[in-house]
């Protein structure tokens, strides 16, 4: 199924969870925050939150800034 990750369309396995997506993208879950459809997904829910076709996912991290 297709989801939008950080603005780009991405093909992922049906029934993928947030944890599964992060793993596929090789992103450690500790230092990021994830939003699905403008709602934050708490870290504790990464393993249970199942993504749906067309979901808009944002994965953010800290970068240098002032």
């Amino acid at each position: 199924m297709k989801v939008i990750v950080n603005g780009d369309s991405s093909d992922i396995r049906d029934g993928s969870t947030v944890a599964g997506l992060l793993e596929a993208l090789k992103i450690g879950r500790e230092r990021v925050a994830v939003e699905v459809g403008l709602e934050i997904v708490p870290k504790a829910c990464y393993d249970t939150h199942t993504l749906m076709e067309g979901d808009k996912v944002e994965i953010v991290q800290f970068v240098g800034g002032g």
Partner: peptide, 19 residues
């Protein structure tokens, strides 16, 4: 120390992370 919040670069995961 201040930090900014930005999208993770999905296409290029080679870059080191600030933290």
């Amino acid at each position: 120390i201040t930090v900014a919040v930005r999208r993770v670069n999905i296409s290029d995961r080679s870059k080191e992370s600030l933290l």
